[in-house]
Amino acid sequence: MSETDVKRSKLKYSVTLKGKRKYSKYKILYLMLFPGMLYYLIFSYLPMYGVTLAFKDFLILEGIMGSPWVGFQHFQDLFSDPYFYTVLKNTIIISLYKLVFGFPIPILFALLLSEIANMKFKKVVQTVSYLPHFISWVILGGIFFTIFSLDGPVNAIVKLFGGDPVLFLADPTYFRTVLVLTSIFQGFGWGSIIYFAAISNIDPQLYEAAIMDGAGRFKRMFYISIPMLFPVIAIMLILSMSGILDAGFDQIFNMYNVQVYSVADIIDTYVYRQGLIEMNYSRATAIGLFKSVIALIMIVVVNKIVKIMDRESSLW
C-alpha cells in the first residue's frame, strides 16, 4: 500500500470516528428530531407521488398506477378556461390586499406596544390580541355574519347616520374589504409575536445611548427598532410572498356565497369544488401543482431581491 493510500485510509477512519463521537454526543437530540422527520416523510414527501395525477386521466377503479397518461392535457384545458383567470385574478387581488394592509399591522403593533412601560397592561393587551387566532373561522364566520347582517351593529351605525342598511357579505362591492379587515383582526396579534421577540433581543444600550443624545420615542423607533427588525421583516416578507396564491381558504369558504363568487372565488375554493364536489381529481391536482410552482418562483425571486438589498437578510 502506497503512502497516499495510507493517508487516505487514516483520514477516512478519522472522519468516521468523529462522526460516531458526534452522533454519540447528540444522540438524544437526534432521537427528538426523529418524530418530526417521520411526520414530514409520511405526510409531506410520500404524498408527492400523487402529483402524477395532474398528468393522468384518473380513474378511481384503476387507481393512480392504472390510470392512462395524458401529459399536459389538464393544464391546456385549465389555461383555456376563461373562468380560471377570474379565479386567479381574485386570488392575487385578495392576497395582495392582505399583504399590503395586513403585513405592516403586526410590526406597528409590536413597535407601539413595546413602548408601553406598564408591564401588566402590556401583557393583557398581548393576550387579548392573540385570542382570535385560536378561534376557528367556522365560529368567526358566524360572528361576522351577525355583526355585518342587516340587523347587526354595523348597519345600526349606518342607520344612525341616515344611511340604508347594506348586506356587506353578499355585496361584491364591500366583500373584499370585509374579508381583509376580518383577516387582519384574526391574525395581527399572533403575527406580532415574532416581532416582539426580535425587539426584546435588541441591545438596551442602543436605546440608552439614544436617550442620552436626546432622541424621543419615535426617533428611537425609526432609527433603532425598525433597522434592527429589518432582517426579520425581510424573512417574513419572503415567506408571505411565497404564499401569494394562498388567499385564505378557511376564511373565504366560511364567509362567501354565490352572490360574491365574481370577487371572492379563489384557487383553493375552485380546487375544492373541482376535486371534492365534481370529483375531477386530475384537474384539481393540476391546479394545485400550478399554484406550488408559482409559490416556488415567488420565493426565489423575492429572496433574490432581498439578497441584493441586504445579503445577510436573505434565506439563502
Rank of each mutant, 00 (worst) to 15 (best):
Q73K: 15
Q76D: 02
S80E: 07
D81G: 06
P82S: 12
Y83N: 12
Y83Q: 11
T86A: 06
V87K: 10
N90T: 14
K98N: 15
L99D: 03
F101E: 03
F103K: 10
I105R: 12
I107A: 04
L108Y: 03
F109V: 13
A110Y: 04
L112E: 01
L113D: 03
S114K: 11
E115R: 09
E115Y: 09
I116L: 15
A117R: 15
A117G: 11
A117E: 15
N118R: 12
F121C: 11
V124E: 00
Q126A: 06
Q126N: 06
T127E: 01
T127A: 14
P132Q: 09
H133P: 08
F134M: 08
I135R: 03
I135P: 06
W137G: 08
W137D: 04
I139G: 03
L140N: 13
L140Q: 13
G142I: 02
I143H: 06
F144T: 09
D151I: 08
D151R: 14
G152D: 00
N155G: 09
N155I: 12
K159I: 14
L160I: 01
F161M: 12
G162Q: 09
P165R: 13
F168S: 02
A170W: 00
A170E: 06
A170L: 02
P172Q: 05
Y174R: 10
F175C: 07
R176M: 05
T177F: 13
L181G: 11
T182Y: 08
F185H: 05
Q186F: 03
F188L: 02
G189Y: 01
W190C: 04
W190H: 07
G191M: 06
G191S: 08
A197T: 12
I199L: 15
S200A: 15
